[in-house]
Amino acid sequence: MDLAEIRRLVKLVEKHDIEELQVEEKDFKISISKGKKSSTPQQIQTPVIPHPQIDSVDVDSFKHQHTDAPVQHVTSDKKKDENVVEICAPMVGTFYRAPSPDSDPYVNIGDQIKPGNVLCIIEAMKLMNELEAEISGEIIDILVENGQSVEYNQPLFLIKKA
């Protein structure tokens, strides 16, 4: 399920007399509900979401993850290429794309990386830990948002190996 699809579902709920909509796929579950007082779906903040956070949608994420693969996530067909690998979080913490709020991100989609390049920071217990690349390749996707909480082995980047 991608962003466009989610937006479509949100519009659906908004437009029609639907109070709650739940959709479940193999490794993704989404629940959209409308508050009774307002006419627009309510915004629900959950601090721990591995998928992009969207207004007015409560994405069931750290709950009920039934997949076979040890590393699971939902995005695109980009992964089907055998040359594409995931770089996953080696620890629990908060993901930051740049060394500080006003700096530029370490990397962007399309960048070429090689071993030793710093890709991001994972902050845990007030310590900033730089995550370095161990392979060479091109960043074809960044799977988490700046400031998002991540768990152990959560996929962060998709790299097309050089």
């Binding site: 601090p47 620890m91 629990v92 991540v150």
Partner: peptide, 12 residues
């Protein structure tokens, strides 16, 4: 320990 404390922090 750091992993668990970190998990407590990110989940408040």
């Amino acid at each position: 320990m750091p992993s668990i404390i970190s998990a407590a922090e990110i989940s408040n």
